[in-house]
Nucleic acid binder design. Structure first.
Lengths: 208, 208, 208, 208
DNA sequence: GATGAATGAGCTTTCATTCAT
DNA sequence: GATGAATGAAAGCTCATTCAT
């Protein structure tokens, strides 16, 4: 058996267990049982419990990055690219439900209890969004005032919060596709109707 | 000393400690020391550690709801109301940094650990956003296609993710005001420039 | 309110609570609630939790001694006296069920966790039995070979174990009177039938 | 090391510690230290503190049952069998002093704390006595009026109370053999002398 | 490499006791 | 005398981690 096999087996088991119980409530022995290895074996592949979570992030977000980048390669229109990102992100819920739950729940916490850990993979993931935005701005399709560094976060946050809807409630009333469409539409076109847009020259007067 | 005093003292101490170490890493004795009471005293006011977290949510989000509702009362324009919500939400970071951190970090997790607990206060808070959106739609200022139930989540998620920027990194490069303005501007006007808007009739082609 | 009133109230409450939960599982606050006094009040009348148990023993066994002695005064026949003792002891189960349970359960333990405490009242109670036996021997009714110091223990132990039958099981299949009669009959006449008695000259050969 | 070794080691340590301090005052760490294992190790073999006590009962009374049954196999005379039982029971004090103390002290309580636990092993042990009595009655050696279900309890209670004498006081004035002999003699022949027996036709008039 | 029994530090929670009112 | 809020020591139990096999 190749080394990577057990490594992967443990990561996958950890995803299942973390999704079920959360990181802190999960026991190493739970993961070991799920992975069908001995408790001690886990320590041949990971330094400690945190290390499993970090490796899980790195590996799985790494895969996500590869997938999404491959998907976006074929697309030229930044507007469509944003939509694709949204769809792909939310479809994780369908295809890898447990992983989606773990990322959703534990990703945020991770920084807090692992102060030293800078989640570079995650940053790389979110930076795909800002790259799209910059591309759109370069093409003159997106407004120059939009700050890519801020907007990427807002866009990701919106998607992630949608994600949470599905993670926590089984039937939120919308399909994943509808949600993805709504979110990307919102970010692209905003909420204003034609009248709302024309009526007020500066709806965000505060920022002025 | 009034009962509420100790109760409040413990809640405030818990906010400080949870913000510093996270819920799971926080020990009851940490909270007790911070609140300058004995460990056992905490159990005169709360059933257990979870109960502190839940009470904290209820109390503090309750206060937030009161404040934001009061603030919005004076405002009629839904566009401006969204902006006010954004500002108020993000200003929590300035005024009550630790509380912001706790809500940011632990709010999501809470549902996972405490399956039975439905965070009604939080739902009430987010519903303020959908109420604003409906108001805007009623006035014809916001597009009818926007689903308030989805958009409220997206808006909150965007804000919350911005929040995370400040919670995790001390100097994110933007002020809170700029971020609030950016996010509400994004949701109101979208990213499209005039050319981007006119060029493509169906930017969200996928949803069609 | 006379001092003794509260003292008595607490003792009675303690009997109820100890019977229900056992000494170690009983909380001072349970007793206080049962006695309708404040927790702290208990410490005005007793030094500590053990002291309640000891006082309870002293008081209640003291009463038992008075009662049984009074009862026996009217009786001359030692055989009948033994029977009366048995009946009176077992009737405690009917008349003061909770007290019977506490004595049954906690009396034995007491010596163990309160090494310094010599349960003189209990000894006094059991010595009533040996006095009866000695009286019977003096009258030539009881065999000289019977050691009063041993027999008193055996008799008490037999009764107490019967007691346990009722304390633990609601319907043991015999009435208290039957049990009392059986036990005193056993001790007086033994198990041997006429044939068993005559057949073997030395049934207790071992003691020879 | 075989699994049973640690299990046994812990049981034996628990006997020592329970004998010394009583069940409730004994700490898990006391037992662990006595057994020369880590605290946590105990929980690999037992569910909790109660479980140790119950296992202890089951194991040790089980052994007693085997021993006494083996001993009684060789004996035919029910009178002698009763005596053997008495001797064997009391000799536990010599051979396994600590075990005798624990059984003596904690056996009674166990039913109280662990309501759900039916001490079947103990019942099996006491039923050895009633089996002997029935055998004696079948042979016409014992009186028919003796109720085996009551007499077994009385006999055990008498023995157990004798046991207590040695457990609590180092020098009770009698040897174990004398006590065993006295008790079985009492139960077999009763207290009545020939004159006491003939003089009164109905010594247990009350039962009539 | 793989195992899983053993470890023991660590933490939540309880509750007898105190003492200011 | 009476109260009951506050105390804080104490202990059962868990579980990440180790290491002999």
């Amino acid at each position: 058996m190749r080394v990577s096999d057990k490594h992967q087996k443990i990561i996958q088991a950890a995803i299942t267990v973390f999704a079920r119980k959360g990181f802190f409530n999960a026991r190493i022995s739970d993961i070991a049982k799920e992975a069908q290895v001995a408790d001690g074996t886990i320590y041949l592949y990971f330094n400690n419990k945190f290390d499993i979570l970090i490796s899980l992030f790195e590996d799985e977000i790494g895969k996500l990055i590869l997938q999404i980048k491959q998907l976006l390669e074929k697309e030229e229109d930044p507007r469509r690219m944003l939509e694709l990102f949204a769809i792909h992100h939310l479809q994780l819920l369908k295809n890898k439900r447990e992983l989606a739950e773990v990322l959703q729940m534990e990703l945020r916490q991770s920084n807090k209890f692992m102060k030293e850990y800078r989640n570079t993979k995650f940053i790389e993931y979110v930076d795909i969004i800002s790259a799209i935005i910059r591309k759109g701005q370069a093409q003159g399709l997106f407004r120059k005032e939009v700050l890519p560094g801020v907007a990427k976060r807002a866009f990701f946050g919106a998607l992630d919060e949608m994600s949470r809807l599905w993670v926590l409630s089984p039937e939120p009333g919308y399909t994943i596709e509808e949600a993805a469409s709504q979110v990307s539409d919102l970010f692209l076109s905003g909420m204003l109707s034609e009248s709302g847009r024309s009526e007020a020259a500066q709806p965000t007067a505060l920022s002025a």
